[in-house]
Write a protein that binds this DNA or RNA. Sequence first.
DNA 1: CTGAAAGCGCTTACAG
DNA 2: CTGAAAGCGCTTACAG
Lengths: 346, 346
Amino acid sequence: MIESDKPLAQKNRNRVSTSIDVAKLAGVSQSAVSRAFTPGGSVSEETRAKVLKAAKALGYRPNAFAKGLITQQSGLIGIVFPSTQSPIYTQALQYLTRALVAEGYSSILIPFDTYADGDHSIPQLFHYRVEGVIVMSSTLESHLVEECLDLNIPVVQLGRVARGANTNCVVCDNASGGVMAAELLVARGCLRPAFIAGDHATSTNRERESGFCRRIEQLLGYPPLVYQANFSYEAGGAAARELLVMPSPPDGLFCATDLIAIGVMDVAREMGLSIPDQLQLIGFDDIPQAAWVGYQLTTFSQDIERIAEESVRILLCQIKRDDNRCTHLILPVTLVQRGTLRELTG
Amino acid sequence: MIESDKPLAQKNRNRVSTSIDVAKLAGVSQSAVSRAFTPGGSVSEETRAKVLKAAKALGYRPNAFAKGLITQQSGLIGIVFPSTQSPIYTQALQYLTRALVAEGYSSILIPFDTYADGDHSIPQLFHYRVEGVIVMSSTLESHLVEECLDLNIPVVQLGRVARGANTNCVVCDNASGGVMAAELLVARGCLRPAFIAGDHATSTNRERESGFCRRIEQLLGYPPLVYQANFSYEAGGAAARELLVMPSPPDGLFCATDLIAIGVMDVAREMGLSIPDQLQLIGFDDIPQAAWVGYQLTTFSQDIERIAEESVRILLCQIKRDDNRCTHLILPVTLVQRGTLRELTG
DNA sequence: CTGAAAGCGCTTACAG
DNA sequence: CTGAAAGCGCTTACAG
């Protein structure tokens, strides 16, 4: 008897209060409560004060589900998060959620592989009527984006450009990074430059590669060697093991990411090569590890905070104005000079 | 004229269909549609087929807001994500969302500092009536947890134990790690062991420290030196710079995290010390960098995937059964032997 | 400024 | 198994 009473009592004690409860306690109508919680709602200061006091006493919090149902605005943004190791995406995620919260939105997280799992698993995402989606996955070539477009849900792709899709994207200037890398290497006397490529399917990799190759060819008259790897530390090491034992090995490497470059460095040193004397190196991303004492990797830094904020800005702009002109924002990268490039000799 | 027509037409075209639309097309009642989408709902196969066909034609997706409103179950879990650099949390986040999706829940992300920002900003979290919360922040000592408890919302703390709070938590066996570290170091002849501590406010750090100190004192008859740092790479380097120039510097270091240990290694090498000959080292966490060629750090690995899955299991258990008995789950750590400890001499 | 009332899109007793 | 109807907790014309 006592045992069955207890859960009941708890339920009652913890029952969340509604606007009707607040209205009763405040001695006003339920509409008045709603208005008091609506920015710009037409209520007298007196009524608002009574409502707020009652609401506080009851621990009232407007039910977002009821609100969303009636206003047809969920206040929810979907964020597709990739299953990668790169700290870049974690940083982006933090900045994104922060910016979104500041604008009054909440973030629903969609792990990448959930969606990749197959078409039959309709993402819960759409059940919650997200108002917009930010896609971070660098390799995802799925139809998620198309599905959003069908449903008229704005999408911003962060850090990637899908082929031919007319969706918004915010990326750093990968191509310019490639061009600059070529110039830096050639200016320091490199004659056998190489590019260590990450995942070929990503726009990030393709742009860095083409910028680099194009400029090398212009400067040197021949293209660099291109080694196809992937975005991991291990792939960098493997690339180094193959490339650096060649008859005339590369003397300057531009790596698609810092992680690759660091993998190269570790193996190159193991092989007794000195950096930057015998091998010069440039990375991309400026991950925390690039600044570590043991690496001091010269690299390009992207302004992740700005990329995240612009993504949110563009997304919210489309949500609010319901315009569907497409924005393709390219943010500059900055060279971070550290120790893997030789000094420029006068 | 044309311009004002267009948006309207678009709105219509993209208007999401409801169960009533589906019912009309399928020639059944709206209730039948609802039942067809409810697992175990009492509908004939024939009706279900008609409904599913119509639903597919219309691109119907049940509105989670309407459903949540009527069932009083949001299907949403809040995840508090810390603003840290450690890859551990990113991994945990991926495993968590994956496990949650598999169970039919969606994840709302709460960036740590949002909530820390001040009490006046009531977390949107509660507006969405999350059914449970998983807290990952290692340093957060906020009242979020208490607030959840007040509202009878189950909470699981992942990787941390709050002082005196009677909430669920899933952690790895930090204390045993400390004990094992002490034994490993002493067995290899260390006479001047030291602990480099991370953030003092975290249970993680406290348990690693106390396990280590207790066991060192038992084995050696005196306590280890304890250097107060924080959980960063930089703090490890700073600690090394101070400790390793002492008259009789430590000969064996247990670091609260791998990141600290790696910071120590980089500086120790810069100072010309050879590892493990002149300085032995043990980390904690087994982050990817610990396995890098340049470090080969001996460390303890926690099974993040299991920790995440158990957290979800415990949380859902409390949500479904509405029992509030508290679970405190401690998962074992395993030693990952690499190169920063000397060989045991027979 | 205020309240009564309709309605958002579902689920679920209730009565066949 | 099926449908009509109530109701979840809000917002928002509508009429004072």
